[in-house]
Structures are given as structure tokens and as C-alpha cells.
């Protein structure tokens, strides 16, 4: 189990927990919890990987809440990102451009941890909305709207960085 899912779980934890040492601690906590509660795993509800991801996500979020570390991220309070048109967003993300990639990488760092986790799960791990909803204890429609909003938010941050 550790060999199969260990790297993915560590990457997921390290994505949310900024410190490397803390990520190691949380990783261990995740698998201790997995070993203790393995009897509670229900294959009908989710795959084992998704179930472990769910535990890892919850452990990381609760760790961040306990530590109360200052996390600085962009918050679109005035709803300016929502004003961006879909064509504008598609032009930013669709046309391959190494400079834009670097800008996107910089912009991702300004996202809150939960949004960063969702967008990584969707684009990098290619998880379904249902699985993401299971991991984050949400519903697929909420995840869909969050993804759409995050895309626009990233586009807005890129434009702010460019200006």
C-alpha cells in the first residue's frame, strides 16, 4: 500500500502543507489513520486511492487549522474575476506559451490551499468531479462551480501580474 500510494499521498500533503518536515509528519499521521481505520473502508463508495486521498486531505486541512500559520492568498471580494469572459480565459490557458506557464505557476501560489488542491486533483491527477467531491466532502456541482471560478481567478491573477 505504501509503495503504491505513498508518493501520491505525500505529493498531495506537500501541496497543502508548506513545510517539508510538517508534510512528513502529516504523511505519517495519514497512514497511521489508514491502518487503524482500514476496516471502515467501503469499496462501493470509492476506490482505495480516493479513500486515502480523502484522509490525507482532511489531515492536511486540520493540520493547517491547528497551526494557524499565516497564509496569504488572493481573494476576489469584488467579483472582478467573474467579469472575465470565457474567451479571455480560454486564450490565456489554451494557447501554449512558456511565459504564460510560468505566470500560471506564480499565480497558483496565490490561490488558497483548498482551491489549489482541487485544481491539481482535476488537472494533474485527472480525478472525476465525484471523486474530488468525495475527497473534499462536497458535491460534484459545487466542485464544478469552484473549478470554473478558480480558472477565472487564476486568469485575473495572471493579468494582475502582467500589469
Amino acid at each position: 500500500m505504501l509503495e503504491r500510494y505513498g508518493h501520491a499521498v505525500f505529493a498531495q500533503v506537500a501541496r497543502l502543507v508548506p513545510s517539508f518536515e510538517d508534510a512528513e509528519e502529516v504523511y505519517q499521521d495519514v497512514f497511521v489513520k489508514v491502518f487503524k481505520n482500514i476496516n471502515m473502508y467501503d469499496p462501493e463508495k470509492s476506490s482505495l486511492k480516493t479513500w486515502i486521498s480523502h484522509i490525507a486531505y482532511n489531515e492536511s486541512i486540520s493540520f493547517l487549522r491547528q497551526r494557524t500559520m499565516p497564509v496569504i492568498y488572493y481573494e476576489d471580494r469584488e467579483g472582478e474575476a467573474e467579469k472575465l469572459s470565457e474567451s479571455e480565459v480560454e486564450a490565456t490557458f489554451g494557447h501554449p506559451n512558456p511565459e504564460t506557464v510560468q505566470l500560471i505557476r506564480a499565480a497558483i501560489k496565490h490561490l488558497p490551499p483548498d482551491e489549489r488542491a482541487i485544481i491539481t486533483m482535476f488537472y494533474y491527477e485527472e480525478m472525476s468531479l465525484k471523486d474530488i467531491a468525495y475527497v473534499t466532502e462536497s458535491i460534484p456541482t459545487t466542485i464544478a462551480s469552484k473549478l470554473s471560478r478558480t480558472r477565472k481567478k487564476l486568469c485575473k491573477i495572471i493579468k494582475m501580474l502582467q500589469s
Partner: peptide, 20 residues
């Protein structure tokens, strides 16, 4: 379609420190 976004996230993940 979002190739730039995918590439950015992929690069980010590649540069992330590996598990000890």
C-alpha cells in the same frame, strides 16, 4: 484545452521535493 494550465501544474508537481 487548458494546456498552459496543465503544463504549469505538471511542472509544479515535478519540482516539488520528492518523498524521502
Amino acid at each position: 484545452q487548458d494546456t498552459n494550465l496543465r503544463d504549469a501544474i505538471w511542472q509544479d508537481e515535478m519540482e516539488r521535493p520528492q518523498m524521502p
